[in-house]
Design a binder for these strands. Structure first.
Lengths: 213, 213, 213, 213
DNA sequence: GAATAACCGAGACGGTACGTCTAGTCTTGTG
DNA sequence: CACAAGACTAGACGTACCGTCTCGGTTATTC
């Protein structure tokens, strides 16, 4: 049974040189590191990569797409190491986010993507799928272990939980950047939020607002 | 006692036409609304405002400053109405943020500012001082009332509390924009977070993580 | 005695497809006719001929050579028909030149060759040898008949005579193109010039310039 | 009676710097002299003239117009000196044409203009009006003196006469460039052609072609 | 009321990057 | 080897903005 399946139709002509992808991506990241987004021009990337501009436009439609791809290769391993203690693992994930955002190149590029994304839904979609979602999957698995261990209510909406945990950290690294968030922030966020998420059947989740009316 | 004090030195020459500030700001906002940040060029602003480019550069040093100022005039009233119930008032403040971010012009401009700000600390500083801080002051006053009413622990770090409340909302409107946050999000955040902030002397703030070791 | 002589060394591999020469030449002429020299790009020729660019460069070194060859095939028959009257035959040759220059594709291409030739002696040489000289040979034969018939002085420099006859026509079709030369121009040139070339032993060819000295 | 007339409306804004016209023209001619038409790129002209590309495009619509203007300034004085003898003066004019065409920069540029002109009537028109016609006016005046002195028939069509004289020289400098025309060519052309143009009431202008029938 | 000084609209200026196009070469698989 | 397809480097094209400068001309204050 020789199922031919889809079988890539093998395009005609000279195939694209796969090494150029890397040369271009590297040049992109170098330029970003050296001069920020403002110094990232297509012409500079092409020159630094030793590549014609046409080669660049053949593979990416513009600067933003190029940056997304470059950043993706940069941010592959979101693995903070598996911890025995789920709470510590969550802290580790948040702390990894802080370190990445405050120190590295990614910390300069990420806000740009947010900015571009506001007028460019396609860019945002690609970023979400290729960068954000893989990380969220990783995070979600950890939270599931938290449920198994009785740390988190079994009926909790894990997406919402992630919003509560990641949101404050993102806010402090992107928007309220001054004073810069310290290394204890992750633990503070986790401890505060986990209180609310703890399985506590005997406590009313909402402390009677009518006392104020 | 007529203290002359600093007394503006009264500059020589023809004074600046104050109406032009408004014309320029209006043109800026219109262009942003029509074509996004990419369509916002100094030349287009000048043409639309019926003004020479020099007049623009006489008053602002560049595009970013112009945008910050324009946005500031746009976002003056952060007043969601004073509520009797503090909890409802906090929900109102967060919901106002969501509505602003998801619907209006500001929702397109704000991410751009974040992006520009990453490489432009001066821009970020101005934005923080002129837009962010006034809103935080407003929010902080509300939280103080929450302490007075016994809703929030008296020793809570209010800046941190704001991070916990605003962070998730910002995260959902800026970064994890899909699916878009709904009108119930503000209440969910507030209810979850306030549990953790409630004055609860008899409860350990951290629910014994050793059960997992 | 089978003398092997030069005996083409019979190249290895697949032989060149002779039909492609024609396909390329045809495509070249079509493009010239449609959009002029500016529309004649190597890529367009290759596409139209259904041929790879390499095939083109394998046979011609560049655009100019290609055009020369294409024009040559176009302008093969310079035969205006043999006339009994030599004077009429000369008129016919000049008139053929006028018609060719003012009406056809060649009239657009020929000036280009002149232009390219100024910086490209090799091109000019090929053009001269392959297009010009054959026509001059034809013309020269007619003039020889003119000498035989007593129309032209036997000691006349026929190359110079051709310059005197062809020059004015070329000038009117290439340079002083406005107003465009009419069908009577050939006869006017021939009649005027032949006066000077007539065998007239009793007349001094040069009307005594010493009267002015 | 204050006739307002047309009165140039005095354009708004900063006036164009007239020195740049010259800088650009000079750069154009230098580049043409150094590398021929192929080396003449708009970018090179702008760089050499120390000028932005926009400045160039503000004043000329393209490369051809720029070249025409540059050539015009180059070829202003077509004055070979007024000779007592009209015949010598005509020889001088033709010889000046030969020298210009075979030696100088103009000799490289002129053929290019012919080439471009074939597909670019507007360019040809400008060239004719700004370069050619002034020279022809000069030539025509000389021919009129020739009529006055009895050298040329009073009823001669002077435009046609110029074609007969200039045509052969142009042909030898532009098209049949090999062998290159020598310094005696002008005299040969003039002497031959003037025979045909001489006032000769007693001679039939056409030497009986019926002898050949 | 004349001088002075800064304002104003218009638009030229040197630069820089854009995205497209073509030239001429190189690299695939196929014949 | 030839061939079609098309990737590749190089670099010019003409356009768009940037931020500055230079005009003629307009308000204000100061002498």
């Amino acid at each position: 049974m020789t199922l031919t399946e889809t079988e890539a139709p093998r395009p005609l002509g000279r195939p694209r040189d796969p090494r150029l992808d890397e040369a271009i991506t590297t040049a992109t990241l170098e330029l970003l590191a050296e001069g920020g987004y403002g110094a990232l021009t297509i012409e500079a990337v092409a020159t630094r990569a030793g590549v014609g501009k046409a080669t660049l436009y053949r593979r990416w439609t513009g600067k933003e797409q190029l940056v997304v791809d470059a950043v993706r290769t940069l941010s592959e391993p979101p693995e903070p190491g598996r911890q025995a203690d789920v709470r510590d693992e969550i802290v580790g994930l948040l702390e990894a986010l802080r370190r990445k955002s405050t120190s590295s190149l990614a910390g300069r590029i990420f806000p740009r993507l947010i900015g571009e994304g506001a007028d460019n839904p396609e860019l945002m979609r690609r970023y979400r799928e290729q960068v954000l979602e893989p990380r969220r999957d990783r995070f979600r698995a950890t939270l599931r272990r938290g449920i198994d261990q009785g740390l988190i209510r079994p009926d909790a909406d894990l997406d919402h939980v992630m919003d509560l945990l990641v949101g404050p950290m993102a806010y402090r690294t992107l928007i309220r950047t001054d004073p810069p968030p310290g290394p204890d922030l992750a633990a503070r966020i986790v401890d505060d939020v986990l209180v609310a998420l703890a399985p506590r059947p005997e406590t009313a989740p909402r402390p009677a607002p009518q006392e104020d009316a």
